[in-house]
């Protein structure tokens, strides 16, 4: 798989899910963006796994055999690991219960792979576990200082172009739809047109000479291909 190159150690995610196919789909999804993962199929072993301290984030199903997700969360709260609930219950009260117990987010099944990745990245950034410097070929990005260097030279990017670039580097080799880009960079409430995305992508291609790597996928969106 392609290189998402960061200077941090690999992010490790614990997947607590009793349905083996769903667990597998999550495992494959997070592996696309370069995260490692382990699967637990019941509450008790999940608690033990979290306490081992190997994990940066927990994806926790609510309906588990033996010990349900809420109970697992209560048991691992003290460890301070961010937890995202996965559940088939779209019930608002359940959602509030989960968030009140200290979950960072709540994803209702069925979800799309991209949505899961986006939510995980938001939480990791919130916990400062994402990379602070990103590298793609000869491009170096300092996320905190908002600085982009190409071959050692500073390249001026507008804030939106900067966010878009980070999003592409974080999701290397993933085809991303214009809608997804709009909601990730411009925010969910933005009612803009996909033309806006196209203009910004063209600017990034021009400024960073990425014509060959940042490719258009017909009818879907764009993909930043891994360097070879």
């Amino acid at each position: 798989m392609g290189g998402k190159a960061t200077e941090n150690k690999m992010i490790n995610i614990l997947i607590v899910e009793d349905d083996s196919n769903i667990a597998k789909s999550i495992e494959v999804t997070v592996s696309i963006v370069g995260y490692g993962s382990e699967i637990c199929s019941d509450g008790k072993s999940a608690v033990d796994a979290v306490k081992s301290g190997k994990f940066d984030l927990v994806l926790l199903d609510v309906m588990l055999p033996g010990m349900n997700g809420f109970e697992v969360l209560e048991n691992v709260k003290s460890s301070g690991i961010p937890v995202i609930f996965l559940t088939a219950l779209g019930d608002v009260t359940e959602k509030i219960k989960g968030l009140r117990l200290g979950a960072e987010d709540y994803i209702v099944k069925p979800f799309e792979a991209m949505e899961l990745i986006a939510r995980i990245e938001v939480i990791l950034r919130r916990f400062d576990k994402g990379a602070s410097t990103l590298r793609y070929g000869d491009i170096n990005v300092d996320v905190n200082k908002h600085k982009v260097l190409k071959g050692g030279k500073v390249v001026d990017l507008t804030p939106k172009e900067f966010s878009l670039l980070i999003f592409f580097i974080q999701n290397i080799d993933i085809a991303i739809s214009r809608e997804r880009l709009l909601s990730a960079v411009w925010g969910y409430e933005f009612e803009g047109e996909s033309r806006t995305v196209d203009i910004h992508v063209q600017q990034i291609r021009k400024k960073l000479n990425l014509k060959k790597h940042l490719i258009t996928i017909p009818k879907l969106g764009y993909r930043l291909e891994s360097e070879e």
Binding site: M1, G2, D19, N21, I22, K24, S25, I26, V28, T29, I32, M63, A88, L89, G90, K109, P110, F111, E112, A113, M114, L116, D173, I174, A175, I176, L220, R223, E225, S226
Partner: peptide, 23 residues
């Protein structure tokens, strides 16, 4: 809801993976 959403989750997630993953 649970019994319907569980298979749907795997279906949607893997279908999405097939669509977005390169190689």
């Amino acid at each position: 809801a649970h019994e319907m959403k569980t298979p749907l989750t795997s279906i949607i997630c893997f279908a999405d993976i097939l669509q977005i993953k390169k190689n």
